[in-house]
Amino acid sequence: MSQSITVIITYAQKNKVYNIEIDPTTQVQELINEFQEMLQPNGQEKIILKYQGQQLFPNKTFDQQNVKKGTQIELLIETKGGL
């Protein structure tokens, strides 16, 4: 059984920082879905999570993408035609 880790999500577009506790075996898409519900972007927008400048793959786990405790992840909302 995996231990939960805390990651730091920065949402620069709204100047917000979230400390989120996750199970490293969670797929990235699950966290994106939670932010989708919380932030409720319109249908033209898509939530993207980036770690060290690289977009995290939604269908892979945090563990598979080497996300560790204390990692800072950038949250971006992309609209059609750019950010």
Rank of each mutant, 00 (worst) to 15 (best):
41 P>W: 06
53 G>S: 07
8 I>D: 03
66 N>Y: 11
12 A>R: 12
48 I>Q: 05
74 E>D: 15
16 K>F: 03
10 T>F: 05
67 V>M: 14
15 N>D: 11
24 P>E: 03
82 G>V: 06
13 Q>G: 06
31 L>A: 03
78 E>S: 04
63 D>A: 06
16 K>S: 03
61 T>R: 11
33 N>F: 06
32 I>G: 00
28 V>G: 04
77 I>L: 14
1 M>D: 08
32 I>D: 01
38 M>S: 11
13 Q>P: 10
58 P>G: 09
77 I>F: 02
68 K>N: 12
16 K>N: 03
37 E>S: 13
29 Q>V: 14
38 M>G: 02
52 Q>H: 11
58 P>Q: 09
8 I>N: 09
3 Q>R: 12
38 M>I: 04
68 K>Y: 05
44 Q>W: 02
49 L>G: 02
24 P>Q: 02
59 N>D: 13
45 E>K: 11
42 N>D: 15
19 N>G: 00
34 E>M: 11
37 E>G: 14
7 V>I: 15
70 G>Q: 12
67 V>E: 07
17 V>Y: 02
58 P>H: 10
36 Q>T: 12
3 Q>F: 09
22 I>L: 15
3 Q>D: 12
31 L>Y: 00
1 M>Q: 07
1 M>F: 01
1 M>C: 04
65 Q>I: 04
32 I>T: 04
56 L>D: 03
59 N>Q: 13
62 F>A: 06
57 F>Q: 09
26 T>I: 05
41 P>I: 08
55 Q>I: 12
30 E>V: 08
